[in-house]
Design a protein around this nucleic acid. Sequence first.
DNA 1: CAACCGTGGGG
DNA 2: TCCCCAAGGTT
Length: 350
Amino acid sequence: MTIYNFSQLVINWYHINGRKDLPWQKNKTLYIIWISEIMLQQTTVKTVIPYFKKFILNFPNIESLNNSSLDEVLYLWSGLGYYNRARNIYKSAKIITAKYYGIFPSNFSDVIKLPGIGKSTAGAILSLSLNFFFPILDGNVKRVLIRYYGIIGSLKDRIIEKKLWHITEIVTPIHNTGKFNQAMMDIGALICLAKKPKCEICPLSKRCIAKIKQKWENYPLKNTKKIYPIKTSWFTLIQFNNTLWMEKNIEKKIWKNLFCFPSFDTEEKALNWLKEKKINTNTYKKIKPFIHKFSHFILYIYPILIPLSSCLKFCKKNNTGLWYDLKKPQHIGLSKPVQKILENFKKNIF
DNA sequence: CAACCGTGGGG
DNA sequence: TCCCCAAGGTT
């Protein structure tokens, strides 16, 4: 099959079956596509949609982002994960304002220099928004190509990665690049599923090597599974009336710049810290522990509740602590476990 | 360059 | 329940 036929099959399929009504497809400006592409990194469409709508409503353009605070951006990102993406969007808004007069750049070398934008995302932004000729290589495209061409290997293999880039550069058409790229992602997300692909409705099944060999499970080869370490964290919920004490994660790598309860990897450290702050540790109440799974480790969270009868002053470097008001929540970034604890607290479960 | 960076959901 | 995966990029 010629390359022309490959891209033509994909584009023809797109005209009938492709997704054209996603929230970021109504007005495909560089800004809209940029935000959506960042949100969609390693995240499903279903999860992204409500976050995207809320984000665009609050930040309709680069200027609004530039005039905002990082806390406000992280507030709208809370629960979505991979918070570096939000920090990079904020950084990018500053860069775009300073370097490009507030207008999102439209040439590849400028776009890819922005933090959080790699080769594939840069290509996606420019092709989906402006129909520029740039190939992409996301998880969807990788899976479609690796099956269609019957490539033996793991997605983590650098050589496979390079080979796939070479192929996507060849199959991507010069015209209708935007439609083609969208179609490849649609086929990957709706048909060429990781598990149980729907080959019977796939426009590429006729010459797909994985389909012909009846071995889609082997494309791509599965990675050897890793054992994830287990870590523990004691969350100290210091309560005064309707407020809880929180501190911004500065030095911690995880949940950086988000707010969290003072946390310690052992109960002893938590108790010592409380004693340092002259808080009576005889009255604290243990709350049911729960597990939070990350992509690379498992965290056992042990919340302990310490009600105060009078408000204490805490010192935190750079004034990055605050009394979180449950009745009038500050706009700050919160991780999922912290959000869950706050919800339970509001429901009076503790 | 392998490890790091979150979270939700499907099978 | 458990395991794997999902529109990646950075260090």
